[in-house]
Amino acid sequence: MQIYLPIAEMPVSVLLILGMGAAVGFVSGMFGIGGGFLMTPLLIFLGIPPAIAVATQSAQIAASSTTGALAALRRDALDLKLAAVLTAGGFVGTVMGVWAFAAMRRAGQLDLVIVLSYVTLFTAIGMLMVGESARDFWSRWKGTAKPRRRAGGHAAMFGLPLRMKFPRSKLYVSVLPVAGISFLVGFAGTILGIGGGFIMVPVLLYLFRVPTGVVIGTSQVQVLFTALLAVILQATLNGAVDIVLAIMLIVGGVFGAQFGARAGRALRADLFRFLLGLLVLAVGIRFAVEIALTPAEPFSIYLPEGRR
């Protein structure tokens, strides 16, 4: 069954979009990430104009992270104070990102910046996570227990002024690195057309050593507000949000996210980190391969004006 998208100006298969929404929703619910880094390339592959793909899938991210955040709230599995600081930093980063996006676009080579950022960011974070998990597995197999939390790590970062207590996250840290990281995530996320949850989760896990049980809920609150801001900005400034596409993605996504969240709770924490690391690494490698291999079609058409 086909339905016409009024803003993207093209017909798409309803079942295909619902299925894609469900699949990405599953991953998103499982790992507490927005899933934009998976959905955007899929939609573009279907022929939906990139600007509309990026803008519209943030509506789905907002919906699925609402569900996730509410579930985490009921289970008391989030740190609202930390989420508030992250959201504030993320907002500033998002607005700056929108500005930088336009500037780079004017200068040309935005595509290259995006792909290279994907490769560096994803490969680095993915390798960090997979490596850490592999060491965990190895030490458990050898029978030598590793201390779970290293007290007083990152001394320089923790010694900055404006320290703040985040009791839920067992964190007593300066606000500056937290806000700084969330600013960077908002900034990079906007330029890459993603929510940034997949950067935020590893940062909270590894850099700030927030307990795994709190990370997902907290990240989802931050993703929710960032995505909501993105939807409203995109619709108002660019007119690039397609409501028909958004509804289909949301309906598919909320169902997928439910099952994903259940699967995520059933996972062991170390396996969870390993799988998330693998996923991030896989996306990084995919982009690395894309720019390293000889393309089958070296030419591409670019439409300077308009959204298409």
């Binding site: 789905q60 569900t67 108002t236 409501i243």
Partner: peptide
């Protein structure tokens, strides 16, 4: 829908934002 998204883009954007929240809450 096209006219709405062009001529009243702020209400349109707010509407989609509200819709996302509603769907997420319903789920």
């Amino acid at each position: 829908i096209t006219a709405l998204s062009q001529e009243r883009s702020l209400p349109y954007g707010l509407g989609i934002g509200a819709m996302s929240l509603l769907f997420g809450w319903m789920a």
